[in-house]
Protein backbone atom coordinates (compact mmCIF):
# COMPACT_ATOMS: atom_id res chain seq x y z
CA UNK A 1 0.00 0.00 0.00
CA UNK A 2 2.63 2.44 1.06
CA UNK A 3 4.77 1.62 -1.97
CA UNK A 4 2.43 3.78 -4.05
CA UNK A 5 2.82 6.48 -6.65
CA UNK A 6 3.59 5.59 -10.26
CA UNK A 7 7.37 5.92 -10.27
CA UNK A 8 7.47 4.16 -6.93
CA UNK A 9 5.41 1.31 -8.36
CA UNK A 10 7.67 1.00 -11.40
CA UNK A 11 10.85 0.93 -9.37
CA UNK A 12 9.19 -1.58 -7.06
CA UNK A 13 8.26 -3.84 -9.96
CA UNK A 14 11.84 -3.62 -11.20
CA UNK A 15 13.06 -4.62 -7.75
CA UNK A 16 10.74 -7.61 -7.98
CA UNK A 17 12.30 -8.79 -11.23
CA UNK A 18 15.83 -8.13 -9.99
CA UNK A 19 15.28 -10.20 -6.86
CA UNK A 20 13.66 -12.97 -8.86
CA UNK A 21 16.27 -13.08 -11.59
CA UNK A 22 18.99 -15.26 -10.05
CA UNK A 23 16.57 -18.04 -9.20
CA UNK A 24 14.78 -17.81 -12.53
CA UNK A 25 18.05 -18.06 -14.46
CA UNK A 26 19.04 -21.18 -12.53
CA UNK A 27 15.55 -22.64 -12.99
CA UNK A 28 15.71 -22.15 -16.74
CA UNK A 29 19.22 -23.59 -17.02
CA UNK A 30 18.86 -26.65 -14.78
CA UNK A 31 15.14 -27.48 -15.02
CA UNK A 32 13.13 -25.86 -17.80
CA UNK A 33 15.63 -26.10 -20.62
CA UNK A 34 16.65 -29.69 -19.75
CA UNK A 35 12.96 -30.58 -19.56
CA UNK A 36 12.48 -29.58 -23.19
CA UNK A 37 15.86 -30.92 -24.28
CA UNK A 38 15.11 -34.30 -22.70
CA UNK A 39 11.81 -34.53 -24.56
CA UNK A 40 13.62 -33.71 -27.79
CA UNK A 41 16.28 -36.32 -27.05
CA UNK A 42 13.64 -38.98 -26.53
CA UNK A 43 12.87 -38.85 -30.28
CA UNK A 44 16.47 -39.61 -31.23
CA UNK A 45 19.06 -42.28 -31.21
CA UNK A 46 21.34 -40.30 -28.97
CA UNK A 47 24.72 -41.70 -28.00
CA UNK A 48 27.75 -40.07 -26.47
CA UNK A 49 29.71 -40.16 -29.74
CA UNK A 50 28.45 -39.31 -33.19
CA UNK A 51 25.47 -37.25 -34.24
CA UNK A 52 22.02 -37.94 -32.91
CA UNK A 53 19.64 -39.56 -35.38
CA UNK A 54 15.95 -38.65 -35.46
CA UNK A 55 13.83 -41.77 -34.99
CA UNK A 56 10.43 -40.30 -34.21
CA UNK A 57 8.41 -42.41 -31.80
CA UNK A 58 10.65 -45.45 -32.21
CA UNK A 59 12.04 -45.25 -28.65
CA UNK A 60 8.54 -45.19 -27.18
CA UNK A 61 7.38 -47.98 -29.46
CA UNK A 62 10.38 -50.05 -28.41
CA UNK A 63 9.67 -49.38 -24.73
CA UNK A 64 6.16 -50.71 -25.21
CA UNK A 65 7.54 -54.11 -26.19
CA UNK A 66 10.69 -54.08 -24.03
CA UNK A 67 10.29 -56.89 -21.52
CA UNK A 68 12.99 -55.49 -19.27
CA UNK A 69 11.17 -52.19 -19.10
CA UNK A 70 7.86 -53.88 -18.40
CA UNK A 71 9.35 -55.96 -15.62
CA UNK A 72 11.09 -52.90 -14.16
CA UNK A 73 7.74 -51.13 -14.09
CA UNK A 74 6.19 -54.05 -12.27
CA UNK A 75 9.08 -54.20 -9.78
CA UNK A 76 8.62 -50.51 -9.09
CA UNK A 77 4.89 -50.90 -8.49
CA UNK A 78 5.66 -53.86 -6.23
CA UNK A 79 8.11 -51.72 -4.26
CA UNK A 80 5.56 -48.90 -3.97
CA UNK A 81 2.95 -51.36 -2.69
CA UNK A 82 5.40 -52.91 -0.22
CA UNK A 83 6.56 -49.60 1.24
CA UNK A 84 3.67 -47.14 1.11
CA UNK A 85 1.11 -48.78 3.45
CA UNK A 86 3.59 -49.52 6.26
CA UNK A 87 5.32 -46.16 5.92
CA UNK A 88 2.03 -44.29 6.15
CA UNK A 89 0.19 -46.44 8.72
CA UNK A 90 3.19 -47.13 10.93
CA UNK A 91 4.22 -43.50 10.60
CA UNK A 92 0.87 -42.32 11.90
CA UNK A 93 0.73 -44.93 14.68
CA UNK A 94 4.21 -44.03 15.88
CA UNK A 95 3.36 -40.33 15.73
CA UNK A 96 0.24 -40.94 17.81
CA UNK A 97 2.23 -42.97 20.33
CA UNK A 98 4.96 -40.35 20.51
CA UNK A 99 2.49 -37.50 20.89
CA UNK A 100 1.53 -38.67 24.39
CA UNK A 101 3.88 -37.28 27.00
CA UNK A 102 6.10 -39.86 28.67
CA UNK A 103 9.59 -39.91 30.09
CA UNK A 104 12.25 -40.15 27.38
CA UNK A 105 9.85 -39.28 24.58
CA UNK A 106 12.27 -36.90 22.86
CA UNK A 107 14.98 -39.53 22.93
CA UNK A 108 12.72 -42.18 21.38
CA UNK A 109 11.65 -39.73 18.66
CA UNK A 110 15.30 -39.06 17.92
CA UNK A 111 16.11 -42.79 17.83
CA UNK A 112 13.41 -43.47 15.24
CA UNK A 113 14.18 -40.37 13.22
CA UNK A 114 17.95 -40.72 13.13
CA UNK A 115 18.25 -43.30 10.29
CA UNK A 116 16.57 -40.82 7.93
CA UNK A 117 19.72 -38.71 8.15
CA UNK A 118 21.98 -41.54 7.04
CA UNK A 119 23.01 -41.54 3.45
CA UNK A 120 21.61 -44.34 1.33
CA UNK A 121 24.94 -46.11 0.91
CA UNK A 122 25.26 -46.48 4.68
CA UNK A 123 21.73 -47.87 4.82
CA UNK A 124 22.60 -50.23 1.98
CA UNK A 125 25.84 -51.63 3.37
CA UNK A 126 24.51 -51.93 6.92
CA UNK A 127 21.47 -53.92 5.76
CA UNK A 128 23.54 -56.08 3.43
CA UNK A 129 25.50 -57.09 6.51
CA UNK A 130 22.36 -57.49 8.66
CA UNK A 131 20.78 -59.71 5.98
CA UNK A 132 23.92 -61.69 5.14
CA UNK A 133 23.13 -65.37 4.71
CA UNK A 134 25.51 -67.16 7.07
CA UNK A 135 26.50 -64.61 9.68
CA UNK A 136 23.85 -61.93 9.38
CA UNK A 137 21.98 -60.84 12.47
CA UNK A 138 18.54 -61.36 10.91
CA UNK A 139 19.13 -65.00 10.05
CA UNK A 140 20.66 -65.63 13.46
CA UNK A 141 17.59 -64.46 15.36
CA UNK A 142 15.20 -66.10 12.90
CA UNK A 143 17.23 -69.27 13.37
CA UNK A 144 16.56 -69.10 17.10
CA UNK A 145 12.88 -69.17 16.21
CA UNK A 146 13.48 -72.23 14.06
CA UNK A 147 13.46 -70.53 10.68
CA UNK A 148 16.07 -71.79 8.23
CA UNK A 149 18.60 -69.22 6.99
CA UNK A 150 17.77 -67.35 3.79
CA UNK A 151 19.94 -65.49 1.33
CA UNK A 152 17.66 -62.50 1.58
CA UNK A 153 19.24 -60.41 -1.12
CA UNK A 154 20.38 -63.33 -3.24
CA UNK A 155 16.96 -64.81 -3.90
CA UNK A 156 14.49 -63.27 -6.30
CA UNK A 157 11.57 -63.99 -3.96
CA UNK A 158 12.97 -62.09 -0.96
CA UNK A 159 15.26 -59.44 -2.48
CA UNK A 160 12.63 -56.76 -3.05
CA UNK A 161 10.89 -57.20 0.33
CA UNK A 162 14.32 -56.92 1.95
CA UNK A 163 15.01 -53.64 0.16
CA UNK A 164 11.55 -52.48 1.23
CA UNK A 165 12.34 -53.38 4.85
CA UNK A 166 15.56 -51.35 4.78
CA UNK A 167 13.65 -48.47 3.20
CA UNK A 168 10.96 -48.50 5.88
CA UNK A 169 13.64 -48.46 8.56
CA UNK A 170 15.43 -45.65 6.78
CA UNK A 171 12.61 -43.23 6.00
CA UNK A 172 9.83 -43.76 8.54
CA UNK A 173 11.24 -40.92 10.65
CA UNK A 174 10.31 -38.46 7.95
CA UNK A 175 6.62 -39.40 7.95
CA UNK A 176 6.72 -39.53 11.72
CA UNK A 177 7.79 -35.89 11.86
CA UNK A 178 5.18 -34.76 9.34
CA UNK A 179 2.42 -36.57 11.26
CA UNK A 180 3.66 -35.27 14.61
CA UNK A 181 3.41 -31.72 13.31
CA UNK A 182 -0.20 -32.40 12.26
CA UNK A 183 -1.09 -34.05 15.58
CA UNK A 184 0.13 -31.06 17.52
CA UNK A 185 -2.56 -28.97 15.86
CA UNK A 186 -5.35 -31.13 17.27
CA UNK A 187 -6.74 -29.43 20.39
CA UNK A 188 -6.16 -31.45 23.56
CA UNK A 189 -9.76 -30.71 24.67
CA UNK A 190 -11.12 -33.09 22.05
CA UNK A 191 -9.26 -36.01 23.62
CA UNK A 192 -10.23 -34.77 27.07
CA UNK A 193 -13.90 -34.77 26.09
CA UNK A 194 -13.64 -38.23 24.56
CA UNK A 195 -11.96 -39.48 27.73
CA UNK A 196 -14.79 -38.17 29.87
CA UNK A 197 -17.25 -39.93 27.56
CA UNK A 198 -15.35 -43.11 28.34
CA UNK A 199 -13.56 -43.56 25.02
CA UNK A 200 -10.31 -45.54 25.23
CA UNK A 201 -7.10 -44.67 23.37
CA UNK A 202 -7.99 -46.91 20.41
CA UNK A 203 -11.38 -45.33 20.00
CA UNK A 204 -10.07 -41.76 20.25
CA UNK A 205 -7.34 -42.61 17.77
CA UNK A 206 -9.89 -43.88 15.26
CA UNK A 207 -12.57 -41.26 15.93
CA UNK A 208 -10.47 -38.13 16.51
CA UNK A 209 -6.90 -38.55 15.27
CA UNK A 210 -7.50 -40.36 11.98
CA UNK A 211 -10.22 -38.03 10.65
CA UNK A 212 -8.46 -34.86 11.76
CA UNK A 213 -5.09 -35.66 10.20
CA UNK A 214 -6.79 -36.70 6.96
CA UNK A 215 -5.37 -33.85 4.83
CA UNK A 216 -1.88 -34.66 6.10
CA UNK A 217 -2.43 -38.35 5.40
CA UNK A 218 -3.42 -37.57 1.81
CA UNK A 219 -0.32 -35.43 1.45
CA UNK A 220 1.94 -38.09 2.96
CA UNK A 221 0.51 -40.86 0.77
CA UNK A 222 1.05 -38.84 -2.40
CA UNK A 223 4.58 -37.84 -1.41
CA UNK A 224 5.35 -41.43 -0.41
CA UNK A 225 4.14 -42.87 -3.70
CA UNK A 226 6.23 -40.29 -5.56
CA UNK A 227 9.33 -41.03 -3.49
CA UNK A 228 8.90 -44.81 -3.69
CA UNK A 229 8.31 -44.67 -7.42
CA UNK A 230 11.73 -43.09 -7.83
CA UNK A 231 13.57 -45.71 -5.75
CA UNK A 232 17.15 -46.08 -6.88
CA UNK A 233 19.96 -45.79 -4.31
CA UNK A 234 18.86 -48.68 -2.08
CA UNK A 235 18.54 -50.98 -5.08
CA UNK A 236 21.84 -49.84 -6.55
CA UNK A 237 23.77 -50.45 -3.33
CA UNK A 238 22.00 -53.54 -2.00
CA UNK A 239 21.45 -55.65 -5.12
CA UNK A 240 22.46 -53.66 -8.19
CA UNK A 241 19.11 -54.71 -9.65
CA UNK A 242 19.71 -58.44 -9.19
CA UNK A 243 19.35 -61.28 -8.65
CA UNK A 244 18.46 -61.91 -12.30
CA UNK A 245 17.03 -58.41 -12.64
CA UNK A 246 14.36 -59.15 -10.04
CA UNK A 247 14.88 -55.83 -8.24
CA UNK A 248 15.54 -53.72 -11.30
CA UNK A 249 13.26 -50.69 -10.95
CA UNK A 250 12.39 -48.07 -13.56
CA UNK A 251 15.04 -45.62 -12.39
CA UNK A 252 17.62 -48.39 -12.14
CA UNK A 253 16.78 -49.36 -15.73
CA UNK A 254 16.99 -45.72 -16.80
CA UNK A 255 20.42 -45.52 -15.18
CA UNK A 256 21.62 -48.67 -16.93
CA UNK A 257 20.35 -47.58 -20.34
CA UNK A 258 21.48 -43.96 -20.08
CA UNK A 259 24.74 -44.15 -18.20
CA UNK A 260 26.03 -47.67 -18.64
CA UNK A 261 25.13 -48.18 -22.31
CA UNK A 262 24.83 -44.45 -23.09
CA UNK A 263 21.54 -44.90 -24.92
CA UNK A 264 20.53 -41.37 -23.96
CA UNK A 265 17.55 -41.14 -26.29
CA UNK A 266 16.09 -44.38 -25.01
CA UNK A 267 16.79 -43.38 -21.39
CA UNK A 268 15.06 -40.05 -22.01
CA UNK A 269 12.00 -41.87 -23.27
CA UNK A 270 12.02 -43.93 -20.04
CA UNK A 271 12.28 -40.71 -18.04
CA UNK A 272 9.28 -39.23 -19.81
CA UNK A 273 7.17 -42.32 -19.35
CA UNK A 274 8.12 -42.23 -15.66
CA UNK A 275 7.17 -38.56 -15.49
CA UNK A 276 3.84 -39.26 -17.19
CA UNK A 277 2.98 -42.17 -14.91
CA UNK A 278 3.85 -40.19 -11.77
CA UNK A 279 1.84 -37.24 -12.98
CA UNK A 280 -1.24 -39.37 -13.64
CA UNK A 281 -0.83 -41.23 -10.34
CA UNK A 282 -0.66 -37.96 -8.43
CA UNK A 283 -3.77 -36.59 -10.10
CA UNK A 284 -5.70 -39.83 -9.56
CA UNK A 285 -4.72 -40.06 -5.92
CA UNK A 286 -5.65 -36.46 -5.40
CA UNK A 287 -9.06 -37.06 -6.94
CA UNK A 288 -9.81 -40.35 -5.22
CA UNK A 289 -8.71 -39.32 -1.76
CA UNK A 290 -9.87 -35.75 -1.96
CA UNK A 291 -13.38 -36.78 -2.99
CA UNK A 292 -14.21 -38.83 0.07
CA UNK A 293 -13.71 -35.80 2.21
CA UNK A 294 -16.99 -34.69 3.73
Amino acid sequence: MKFSGFSKRVSDAIAGYVLLLPFLIVLVVVVLYPLIQGFYMSFHNWGIFGDPVWVGLENYRQLWTDNNFRSSLWHTVYFVLLTTPPLVILGLLLAAGLNYPFRGRTLVRGMIFFPYLLTVSIVGIVWRWMLQRNYGLVNYYLGKMGIAPLGWLAEARTAMPSIALATIWWTIGFNLVVFLAALQDIPEELYEAARIDGAGPVKSFLRITVPLVRPTTIFVVIMQVIASFQVFGQVFVMTGGGPYGSTRTVVQYLYEQGFRYFRMGYASAIAYVLFFIMFVLTIVQWRVMGRREL
Binding site: G16, Q37, M41, Q230, A271
Partner: peptide, 30 residues
Protein backbone atom coordinates in the same frame (compact mmCIF):
# COMPACT_ATOMS: atom_id res chain seq x y z
CA UNK B 1 6.22 -7.15 -4.40
CA UNK B 2 3.59 -6.79 -7.09
CA UNK B 3 4.84 -6.84 -10.66
CA UNK B 4 3.31 -7.92 -13.96
CA UNK B 5 3.43 -11.67 -14.57
CA UNK B 6 4.07 -12.55 -10.95
CA UNK B 7 1.31 -15.10 -10.56
CA UNK B 8 2.09 -16.88 -13.81
CA UNK B 9 5.78 -17.07 -12.92
CA UNK B 10 4.92 -18.41 -9.49
CA UNK B 11 2.71 -21.11 -11.00
CA UNK B 12 5.53 -22.17 -13.30
CA UNK B 13 7.94 -22.32 -10.36
CA UNK B 14 5.54 -24.46 -8.31
CA UNK B 15 4.81 -26.70 -11.30
CA UNK B 16 8.53 -27.57 -11.58
CA UNK B 17 8.20 -29.28 -8.20
CA UNK B 18 6.29 -32.04 -10.01
CA UNK B 19 9.20 -32.83 -12.32
CA UNK B 20 11.11 -35.90 -11.12
CA UNK B 21 14.86 -35.27 -10.95
CA UNK B 22 15.56 -38.19 -13.29
CA UNK B 23 13.84 -36.39 -16.15
CA UNK B 24 16.37 -33.58 -16.19
CA UNK B 25 19.44 -35.68 -15.37
CA UNK B 26 20.10 -36.97 -18.86
CA UNK B 27 20.03 -33.59 -20.64
CA UNK B 28 21.93 -32.02 -17.73
CA UNK B 29 24.61 -34.66 -18.09
CA UNK B 30 24.82 -33.81 -21.75
Amino acid sequence: ISFPGRDVLFMIVVATLMVPAQVTMIPLFF
